[in-house]
Write a protein that binds this DNA or RNA. Structure first.
Lengths: 150, 150
DNA sequence: GTACTTTTGTTGTATTTACAACATAAAATT
DNA sequence: AATTTTATGTTGTAAATACAACAAAAGTAC
C-alpha cells in the first residue's frame, strides 16, 4: 500500500503557507482566504456547511466568518423561513478581493501541476476526488463522536 | 486545468483532524504526532530539516520539538563536529508511542484508498510525488522571501 | 585572517484553531 | 401536543502557528 497521507499533508501545508503569505498584501490573516472563497462561490451558504466543505471545526469556521463579517468582507442575512440560520454573502468589498484569491489559487494550481499532461492532471483530480469522498466519511464519523476500531 | 488544490486541502485537514482526535488518547496535542513520527523515522535529524519535511515554519517546528523534548518523548544531542546543531532522537517513551502513530497512519492511509486497485493507488502516489516536488520548490522560494510574479 | 553571508536556533507577540459546554430553534417521535 | 433529538450557533479556554527580530556558529570570499 503506497503512502499518500504524508505527501498530501506536505502539499497542503506548502500551498497554504504560500497563499497566506500572498494574502497579507490584502490584509487577510491566516486561513481567511478559504472562507471568503467558499462564500463567494456559494452565495447563501450557512457557516455549518462552510465548515464541512473545508473540514474545519464548526467553531473555527464561526470565528473566521465572524471576523470577515466584522471586516466588512462578508455579511450574514436572516432567512425568512428559518430563524436559526444566517445566510452568508460577500459584500462589495469582499467581491473586490475575491478575484485576487481566485487568481492566486489558479496560479498555484497550475504551478502544482507543472509538467503534467492534461490526461495526467484529470486522472489525478479523479483519484483525489475518490480519496476525498472516503476521507470525508471518516471525518464525519469521528466528528460526530464515533470511536474507531482497529 | 482541473482543480486539485482544494481537494488536497480538504483531504489533508480531514486526516489531520482525525489523527489529532485519536492521539489525545496518548496525550499528544495538535500536530505533535507529525514531529514524533518524523524524528522516529529519521534518527539524528535536526529541527530545521523536520520543518522542511513537514513544510511548517521553523519556529513552529522548534516549539513543537521543544515541547516533545520536555515531555520526554524526544531528546536533543549535541553533535561532536558542529556546535550549532542539535540532533534529534526518540527516547524510550517516544519509541513506545511511535507504533501507535504508525498504526493510525497506516489505517488512515488504507481507508483513504478504499476501493482503489493497487495500480490506481500507486499511480496516485506517483502523481502526488510530482506535485509535491513542484510545490516544494515554490514553498522554498516564498519562504526565502522571493516575490511571486503573475 | 578578516569581513560577509548563510545556517541554525531562540524569544516576543498576534492570531488561529479546536474542544467543551452551553443555548435555542427546528425536526422527529411518541 | 408534549417530549426527545438533532441542527445551528455562541463563548470560555488552552494550545499551536507564523512572523519579526535577534543571536551565534559555520561557511565563503577576499
Amino acid at each position: 500500500m503506497p503512502e499518500i497521507l504524508r505527501t498530501v499533508g506536505s502539499i497542503a501545508r506548502a500551498l497554504d503557507s504560500i497563499a497566506n503569505r500572498e494574502f497579507q498584501q490584502v490584509s487577510l490573516t491566516k486561513g481567511q482566504y478559504l472562507y471568503l472563497a467558499r462564500v463567494a462561490e456559494h452565495p447563501g451558504i450557512i457557516q455549518e456547511r462552510v465548515a464541512e466543505l473545508l473540514k474545519v471545526d464548526r467553531t473555527t469556521a464561526a470565528r473566521a466568518i465572524a471576523k470577515l463579517t466584522k471586516l466588512g468582507l462578508l455579511e450574514k442575512r436572516a432567512d425568512p423561513q428559518n430563524k436559526k440560520i444566517r445566510r452568508l454573502y460577500v459584500t462589495a468589498s469582499g467581491a473586490d478581493i475575491y478575484p485576487l484569491v481566485k487568481r492566486e489559487n489558479d496560479y498555484s494550481n497550475a504551478h502544482a501541476l507543472r509538467g503534467f499532461t492534461s490526461d495526467e492532471a484529470s486522472q489525478l483530480a479523479d483519484l483525489l476526488a475518490r480519496v476525498d469522498a472516503n476521507v470525508a466519511q471518516d471525518w464525519y464519523d469521528v466528528k460526530s463522536g464515533k470511536q474507531r476500531e482497529y
